[in-house]
Design a protein around this nucleic acid. Structure first.
Lengths: 153, 153
DNA sequence: CATATATCAGGTGCACTGAAATGA
DNA sequence: CTCATTTCAGTGAACCTGATATAT
């Protein structure tokens, strides 16, 4: 109770302002990023996982749900819901894999391919707005750093 | 329908791999950060917003709920819940502000101050693990970039 | 009157767990 | 039998909206 005011801020260890922690800044930056992406995708009735799954199927080709989920970090359970939506919209098909009948082979339809092209533009626009304050060199460094954080190394 | 295989990946505009977008990488990095922080805080029955509110009250001194929320980006509604928890644990007090009786003046208790010191260590450890792959210079650049993204400019 | 604060009730997306059915 | 894949049911934290009572 000695001093309620404590002019600067330190006591046992180094400086510890909340706004200087990576955990905090990453959380806030990601909320902003999610908002920018969501604002754009929502008008098409799509969410970020829908986009991510479409983009991954296009990039890596047809694959089982479990494999797509592993690649993206999407839970097997949520993958079911996302694919239900994408299938209902006619963006993907789920065909039983003859080589391993536990698996569904997820494939892009032509409509899915077209839609993905549109979503790509929306995500790019969100990225551009998000990164506006940064120079090209800074963007490069940021993405590299984030990539190493995500894929630890 | 011309070519299903498309060896590399481009067609209408530049490269557009999901893993190269800031929106995506920020989201994934933030999930990892949240997990690291949550793993450590959860054993004390605390979540990130509890920590953030305690840290802010210490850094900026007693303030009304709405002001703390504005500073942190925490919704007024969720602030009520967080403060209910913190008050129940004896970490903060809510006293009606005599100068404006709509406001609650939120203050840290000595127990709250002690607890915050402990949580600070946990968050620092999470930060350290998260940033392990990065050099000191890279960390500096990352935090600067994130800060500019969050506070647009 | 309009505005600001605190609270409550609720909705939605997302991360995650447990269990079941099916097949390798 | 063990393991993997898909599905379903449900939980918890976070983000967000709308409405209300109270005070400025």
């Amino acid at each position: 109770m000695t001093n309620v005011h404590e002019p600067p801020d330190r006591e046992g260890a180094g400086p510890h302002r909340l706004a200087d922690t990576a955990v905090w800044l990453l959380g806030r930056a990601s909320v902003r990023a999610s908002r920018l992406a969501h604002e754009r995708l929502a008008s098409d009735g799509v969410r970020k996982w829908h986009y991510a799954v479409l983009a991954t199927v296009k990039e890596f080709g047809p694959a089982a749900q479990a494999e797509i989920g592993r690649r993206l970090g999407l839970d097997r359970s949520d993958m079911v819901t996302v694919l239900n939506d994408l299938e209902r919209e006619g963006y993907v098909t789920r065909d039983p894999d003859p080589a391993d009948r536990r698996r569904n082979s997820v494939q892009l339809t032509p409509a899915g391919h077209t839609a993905l092209g549109h979503f790509d533009q929306l995500i790019r626009a969100a990225d551009e707005e998000l990164l506006t304050p940064l120079s090209a060199a800074e963007r490069e460094l940021l993405l590299k750093a984030l990539d190493r954080i995500v894929h630890g190394a």
